[in-house]
Amino acid sequence: MTFQNIVATFAGAFIFPFLIRMIWGKMVENWGNIGGWMAAGFIVGTTWTLNHGVGMIFQTGAWVDMAWAAGIGLFTASVVSGDSFSKGVPDYLAALVGGTLGGFLLSCFL
């Protein structure tokens, strides 16, 4: 893996939780449940297209679902912004389990 691939992969993994943290809550605040559905389609769809469709991330054969990137990124952002470490652990574990199940299901037919 070259340095350029490392930087692009890190940036691609950063974009997803960053957009969730910055946009999702505001869309739900402004438009209610429909805003949540719109955020899901916009954020997940756009970042998936950037990372996998355009090829921003570099994969070497191992699969990692985008839920892992979201869980790790949002957990880190919460801890850095002042929330307690223990408060974010259940959400982090749920993201790991969800990401593992999602990746496994994808590997069954892809």
Score class of each variant (00 low, 15 high):
Val79Asp: 13
Gly88Glu: 06
Met1Ala: 00
Phe3Gly: 11
Phe58Asn: 14
Gly45Gln: 15
Phe75Gln: 02
Met56Val: 14
Gly45Lys: 09
Met38Cys: 07
Gly45Ser: 10
Leu93Pro: 06
Gly82Cys: 14
Gly102Gln: 08
Phe109Gly: 09
Ala11Met: 13
Val89Phe: 13
Ser84Gly: 15
Val7Arg: 05
Phe16Val: 11
Leu96Gly: 05
Ala70Arg: 01
Met66Cys: 02
Ile20Met: 14
Ser84Ile: 14
Asn33Tyr: 08
Phe10Val: 03
Gln4Lys: 04
Asn5Val: 01
Asn51Gln: 14
Ser84Thr: 12
Ala69Ser: 15
Phe18Ile: 05
Glu29Tyr: 04
Thr46Val: 12
His52Asp: 00
Phe16Glu: 00
Gly98Ser: 11
Thr2Glu: 01
Gln59Ser: 14
Gly73Arg: 01
Lys87Phe: 03
Ser78Met: 04
Phe3Ser: 15
Ala77Asn: 12
Asp83Phe: 06
Leu50Arg: 11
Ser81Gln: 10
Ala94Thr: 07
Gly35Met: 00
Val28Ser: 02
Ala40Glu: 10
Phe3Arg: 15
His52Asn: 02
Gly41Ser: 10
Phe14Trp: 06
Ala62Asp: 15
Trp37Leu: 15
Leu50Cys: 14
Phe75Thr: 01
Leu105Cys: 11
Gly61Asn: 07
Thr60Pro: 00
Ala95Phe: 08
Gly103Phe: 05
Val79Ser: 14
Met38Lys: 03
Ser78His: 10
Phe75Lys: 05
Ala39Asp: 10
Gly12Cys: 09
Gly55Cys: 07
Trp48Gln: 12
Val7Asp: 00
Ser81Asn: 07
Val44Phe: 12
